[in-house]
Simulated assay, not measured.
Amino acid sequence: MSSESTGDVPGPPPASQLLIGLARLGQAVRMEAWRNAGPHNLSPLQADIVSLLAGSRAPLRQGEIVEALASTAPTVSDAVKVLRRKELLDASRDPGDARALRVTLSESGRAEAGRLSVVSESLGGAVAALTPDDFAAMMRGTVTLMRELQERRAIPISRMCLTCRFFAPKAHPVKTGRAHHCNFVDAPFGDAELRVSCPDHEL
């Protein structure tokens, strides 16, 4: 169905319907984040910071966290202060700029990141209900939308395959089911294995 034509179907056009659906899914993920506050009673933003640092190979400046999470400096600063009080973060001054603070996970923070990495039963069960073809199609659609939004500067750059120098799209026959190639690990892979966050990502 064209995104421009609704035919005889009532309601908002298809593009709006898709955005409504994505908003509902976002609400579900956020609600689950509140339910999964854990022993440290983390807010969704605090949990996002812990997860972001868990996927980083080096300490991050607060400004880098602001950019990565599309938040604001005061909001991230407050969240970092709370996480430090909860002893989930270690902080140090940036050697290149004594005014800048770099943060990384403490031992307790790494343990909490491990807990957060476990997908909830409700969200995991919903994803498991997708057929392999539907899952691959959703991954393909998700990374395509993210790349378009990144190019329009509507969201921050994500460490995903489509923006990575190691990604070679359709390097292999499509009929194999593993048409893409990752030059970092030198291996083919399919749409279902597309990454939206990868520690080995390089622009």
Rank of each mutant, 00 (worst) to 15 (best):
D186K: 10
P188G: 11
H180E: 10
P12R: 08
I155P: 02
M160G: 11
Q17N: 03
E4I: 05
A128I: 14
I65R: 01
M1Y: 12
L130A: 05
N183W: 11
L162N: 02
F184R: 15
S71M: 01
P132V: 15
A58P: 01
G26Q: 01
A23T: 13
D8E: 15
R159D: 10
G109Y: 02
G7M: 07
I49C: 05
S43F: 07
L69R: 03
S108W: 06
E67H: 15
R159Q: 05
C182F: 11
A187I: 12
S120T: 14
R85D: 14
V174P: 10
A168W: 11
V127E: 13
G38K: 03
V118H: 08
N183K: 09
P173S: 07
E202I: 02
F189W: 02
P14C: 08
S158L: 15
T75M: 11
L145Q: 02
S16I: 15
E32M: 09
N183Q: 15
V174F: 03
D200I: 08
P169L: 10
K170P: 00
A47E: 09
H180K: 03
G55K: 00
T104R: 02
S43C: 10
Q150D: 08
E64W: 02
K86R: 13
I65K: 03
M1D: 09
G11M: 04
G124F: 12
I65T: 08
S5K: 11
F189E: 00
M146K: 01
L25M: 15
G190L: 02
V82T: 14
A37W: 08
L145C: 06
F135S: 08
G114R: 11
E148M: 04
R30E: 05
D200P: 10
H172D: 06
R110N: 13
L149F: 00
A70C: 11
D8N: 15
T75P: 12
E107I: 06
A68Y: 00
L52G: 05
R99V: 09
R35F: 12
R84E: 14
M139E: 12
E193T: 00
R195Y: 12
T6S: 15
P95N: 02
T75E: 14
R153M: 00
D97E: 03
T104E: 05
S117K: 04
V50F: 00
A179K: 13
I155V: 10
K81Y: 03
E121K: 02
R102K: 07
V80E: 03
V185A: 06
S92N: 06
P95S: 07
R35K: 10
A126V: 00
V66Q: 11
R195V: 00
M1E: 14
A171M: 10
L145N: 01
G114A: 05
R110Q: 14
M1F: 13
V174L: 09
E202C: 01
P74V: 12
E87K: 06
R30W: 04
E202W: 04
V118I: 08
K170W: 13
D133M: 13
A98M: 05
C161T: 12
M1P: 01
T131N: 04
V29P: 01
G26M: 05
S3M: 07
K175H: 07
W34G: 08
R165Q: 13
M139S: 10
V103R: 00
V29D: 07
P14W: 15
S122V: 14
P10Q: 00
